[in-house]
Design a protein around this nucleic acid. Structure first.
Length: 636
RNA sequence: GCCCACGUAGCUCAGUCGGUAGAGCACCUCCUUGGUAAGGAGGAGGUCACCGGUUCGAUCCCGGUCGUGGGCUCCA
């Protein structure tokens, strides 16, 4: 670096903290009003500064950012000519994107880079922060031959303070914050490589990304890597095969799911519960066809804004028909099939509707991203004065259903009016207000994505996290002020006028495919008794008890329970192992003693051996657990 | 679609510096009738993803296609 820059006024964060005696040995950064600052930043005053120690979760963000710098330094030492771009901290680690002239980095490069990084860490180089003028920064990156940094620099707003961070010889244009020195990085690992477009835009050059993670100690790193291993064991694609739940066949095509008997059974249980709850809470159920005339999609606007996700039309007697990517136009046509009265509203119409959407091959992923799927869709047609109450009920209903399946942690996002939008602004404001209120009442906390709504209305998305930490959108609740216009929907009001109804679109589970995939990972394949395809396996100690075993099985089945009887020649240990691996909730052992006394010795998946009990007692217990969970609603 | 990696038995994977293949599990048969996470023996099972090229000869080397995985943008 050539210039130290103009001396900024005030003292550094370190000095402010030191003066107050608040600087600990493990202080790696500071925070003020939700903003993270490093110890090098100069401030006119030390007001409200709190030290951030290595044990603070926020410190990891800082550490990982510094580790990204160390990695970029190592990469440029080992691979001269490689250009740096950006390298932020992310949820579980960090990445840095490079433009390497001799091609992308591969996994085999990682150990070498790690080794070089260890040298930089061992040297314990202090991080330096320098504020510079725009001209100085440009001159520097011009000299270093870093075109991407120059591009970032040019796009920075004019009033921003430009800072450089340096450790040893290596310098980067960076906002910070960073830990005080590279020696703070006690444990790190480079995890994978990937391609990534410059600025995430596929029209731009494909860069080479290296992912890594870092911690303040080895133990935390080991635990993190163990969590990733555990997540791999829960991968729904692996469990789907092992538990014989579903498959995707090359012969049939990517993203098209085959539901095997056990997976189909669980799906049907979910659907039956879903139907029962809808019928119990004011919904009517619909069916609609899989294809519809192109004009329908023209009118709905899908051919305009959703074309890229739709399959090409097929011709039927000279008319183009389209495989449906959404159910709404069909439900709207049902609404239009006759005159509607204000007395009928709200209409709540739900359908498990199968839709087909084009996804690019690289996007397909097990059950979580597919080309054909069944949405648990619903459309609500309301009078405007019903909007608020209905939104509150909908959020309540959605979260209650998710809780019934064991999901209590989800991320909720309220997406508000975008710049380009249609519809009455007062209606937008009203819908947003009720969406917000509904979210507040759940007490779960939510994010607001300003301007993130669709052009036709605001929405709430509920995301569930999978075992690998990826977030998947399941529920969505969307207000729609446009389709009623497009299709000229009306109802007869009390005063004889014909106002437009308001529409709400929503899915609770998202799609049966995605929800099932997320559920499998969430439960690690261990379905609760009410969902499990096999609720209990009756295991005979030897083939001598086969007759009693089969009789016990028949008694269970007569109570509506799903049981398997294993009276084969395997030893008991082998049977237990096999059925446990199938995640069967109860195993009931039958030997000579049980056969003589008409008992079983059950073993619960969670509690282990329960001791001998009369067969009837076991059946009662199982039957009680087989009941679907009650729905806990605030607005029943 | 793009970048990188991968594609060998139903599954998990060895292997062949170019001479058409192997293990464990699963499956089938037999022996064993065994009390809480794998009893024993035998058998069957492969166009080494597909199509071309190089070669006397390709599962292996080269090119293409398809598929899968990790990412990148959008989305249930």
């Amino acid at each position: 670096m050539t210039t130290a820059g103009p001396a900024a006024p005030g003292r550094t964060v370190r000095q402010w903290l030191e003066a107050r005696g608040a600087l600990g040995k493990d202080t790696v950064a500071a925070a003020r009003g939700g903003e993270l600052l490093d110890l090098l930043t100069r401030l006119p005053d030390g007001e409200g500064l709190e030290p951030v120690s290595a044990s603070d979760p926020r410190a990891l963000e800082v550490l990982r950012h510094t580790t990204a710098h160390v990695m970029a330094d190592a990469v440029q030492r080992l691979f001269p000519g490689t250009k740096v771009t950006i390298g932020p901290s992310i949820a579980d680690g960090f990445y840095y994107d490079f433009d390497r002239p001799d091609g992308a980095f591969v996994e085999e490069d990682l150990p070498r880079i790690e080794e070089e990084m260890r040298r930089i860490v061992a040297a314990d180089l202090p991080l330096e922060r320098v504020e510079v003028s725009r001209a100085e920064a440009e001159a520097l990156f011009e000299k270093l031959g870093e075109p991407y940094k120059l591009e970032i620099l040019r796009d920075l707003p004019p009033d921003v303070t430009i800072t450089l961070y340096r450790h040893g010889e290596w310098v980067d244009l960076c906002r910070g914050p960073h830990v005080p020195s590279t020696g703070r990085i006690r444990a790190f690992k480079l995890t994978s490589t990937a391609g990534a477009y410059w600025r995430g835009d596929e029209r731009n050059k494909m860069l080479s990304r290296i992912y890594g993670t870092a911690f303040f100690d080895e133990k935390a790193l080991r635990e993190h890597l163990a969590r990733i291993e555990e997540a791999k064991k829960r991968d729904h694609r692996k469990l789907g095969r092992e538990l014989d739940l579903f498959s995707v066949s090359e012969q049939i095509g990517g993203g098209l799911v085959l539901w095997h008997p056990k997976g189909a059974f669980v799906r049907r249980q979910i659907e039956d519960y879903w139907r029962a709850q809808h019928l119990a809470h004011g919904y009517d159920l619909l069916f609609s066809p899989h294809i519809g005339r192109a004009e329908l999609w023209q009118r709905s606007g899908h051919l305009g804004f959703y074309k890229d996700n739709m399959y090409a039309p097929m011709e039927i007697e000279g008319n183009p028909y389209i495989l449906k990517p959404m159910n709404c136009p069909f439900h709207i046509e049902i609404y239009r099939s006759r005159v509607r009265s204000y007395r009928e509203l709200p209409l709540r119409w739900a359908e498990l509707g199968s839709v087909y959407r084009f996804e690019r091959s690289g996007q397909l992923h097990g059950l979580l991203r597919v080309r054909g799927f069944t949405q648990d869709d619903a459309h609500l047609f309301l009078r405007r004065d019903q909007l608020g109450a209905e939104i509150l009920r909908l959020i309540d209903f959605s979260t209650a259903i998710l809780r019934a399946f064991g999901f209590s942690d989800y991320k909720m996002v309220l997406a508000t009016r975008p710049k380009e939008s249609s519809g009455d602004p007062a209606l937008w404001a009203e819908a947003e207000r009720f969406l917000r209120q509904g979210l507040e009442e759940t007490g779960c906390g939510f994010e607001v994505e300003e301007g993130g709504g669709a052009f036709y209305g605001p929405k709430i998305d509920i995301h569930v996290q999978d075992a690998l930490g990826r977030s998947w959108q399941c529920s969505t609740i969307q207000a729609d002020f446009i389709q009623p216009e497009n299709f000229d929907l009306t109802y007869a009001a009390a005063d004889g006028t014909l106002p437009r109804p308001v529409m709400l679109h929503r899915t609770l589970l998202g799609s049966m495919e995605r929800f099932f995939g997320v559920l499998v990972e969430h439960l690690a394949g261990a379905f609760p008794v009410w969902l499990a395809p096999v609720q209990a396996a009756i295991l005979t100690v030897s083939e001598k008890q086969a007759a009693y075993g089969r009789e016990a099985g028949a008694i269970c089945r007569a109570r509506g329970l799903r049981v398997a009887v294993d009276d084969g020649p395997d030893k008991l240990g082998a049977k237990i192992r096999e059925w446990r691996n199938q995640r069967v909730p109860y195993l009931a052992v039958i030997g000579d003693r049980e056969a003589a006394e008409r008992t079983v010795t059950p073993r619960s998946r969670t509690e282990g051996d329960l001791g001998a009990m009369p067969l009837a007692t076991f059946v009662d217990r199982l039957a009680a657990e087989a009941a679907p969970p009650p729905l806990e609603l605030r607005y029943p």
